[in-house]
Design a protein around this nucleic acid. Sequence first.
DNA 1: AGACTGACTCTAG
DNA 2: CCTAGAGCCAGTC
Length: 100
Amino acid sequence: MDEETHEWIREYIAAVPAGSVASYGDIAALAGASNPRIVGWVLKEDGFDLPWHRILRADGTVAVHKQQEQLDRLRAEGVLAKDSKIDMKVYRWDPDSRTN
DNA sequence: AGACTGACTCTAG
DNA sequence: CCTAGAGCCAGTC
């Protein structure tokens, strides 16, 4: 695993604003990760400092053990989950909209 | 090196 | 809508 890619993944995840969400595939593509799984791996490694709760699967579902808690966090940020699922088409983070 | 697992994604039934 | 299978890459044993 390249440290550069590793950092990029963390940067992009950290760049996701509250009220928006992103999928593993999105982060992987943006960070240049070989596969979405790499993003999940990075989150597991250094996700403690990152808003990993804003990272969902492509379907908008949360695959973690504490999904209920994550959905609650997202709800607090303005992301309303529909039956443990998120409207990706609505809340999906648009990288082009990021105003660094 | 070989085999298993996983915070993923896609396609098919 | 839900389940099953395959592809993918990195980590661990």
